[in-house]
Amino acid sequence: MDELIFFINRVLISGTVLGSIYALGAIGVTLVFGILRFAHFAHGDMMTMGAFTAFVLASAFAAMGFSAPVPIAFIVLPLAMAITALLALGIDKGFYAPLRDRGAKPVTLLIASIGVTLMIQGLIRLIFGSSTRQMYVAGEAKDIFRIDMSWAGGTRPISITEPQVLMFAVTFLAVLALHFFLTRSRLGKAMRAMADNAALAQVSGINTQLVVVVTWVIAGSLACLAGTMLALDVALMPDLAFNIVLPIFAAAIVGGLGHAYGAIVGGFLIAFAETLAVFNWTAVLRPLNTILPEGWALPPNLALVPTEYKLTVAFIILVVTLLVRPTGIFKGAST
């Protein structure tokens, strides 16, 4: 039983946590690609920027003597998301829109987004320094829930932290909201239409400028959501999301760039692939040692990939997907 609990803690929970982050990030990447046709490299740093926005707001609220049963950074999320969305719009106006209006190639926009990445990174470190901070401001404690498993014969509990529970909840809600937005609302359908066939969307009288604005609002606010939840789970640092921007791209590409649902599936796929690849199977299979013949005992470490190569798993999946099926694992990318 303990082996199963270990598996749940190490694979199921951490895989879902990672998958939630990847999925929320990949949705933004995939929507921006679908509407604006370029790989938005600065998305990771938009996540970091969102997390820092939430941090500043939370610190300000805490300084005013505000307290709540859940982390303040979580309470201020709607506001932080709105601010990040505005920042995303500003970045688009300042850096991408002029290039688009000039009719620049997608690759020029990709390079511009790297410029934006560097500027955000530089600014964050200029303002906040390069130290690691806690998103739990003003002495809040990170609650850990331990689910006692002794009734099932386990000696160890299933443990899950407060930010992880919150993360599952908000990811679920965000995905649900996005689903209804894209399938039920006039603007959401217009977004899908523009991703499908931008020229025809324009001919139909769809206000493409408005769709671009909506895209950045969604991408920016989801980036803030993902960044803040990630920072709550781990810690807040200037390279919080730059390190995971490639796995996020891997998720978006595996799901087929431009497909929001594919991005969600891709996010969880990449996350579980990473988690399972570095998982030490001996920990689960150890009971077999009692029935295995002498000299055939399992080695102490039976992971497919050494832990230091965890992120490499995502890169390999990324490269293999690009080579074998660049349109993603789902059929029919409309590009």
Binding site: L99, G115, G122
Partner: peptide
């Protein structure tokens, strides 16, 4: 010291954005 070191990252990004535009 550590903040100033980051200025060059910002400058690099700004140079890309300005040059492209």
């Amino acid at each position: 010291d550590s903040r100033a070191l980051q200025m060059r990252v910002f400058v690099l990004g700004a140079v890309i954005a300005l040059a492209l535009r």
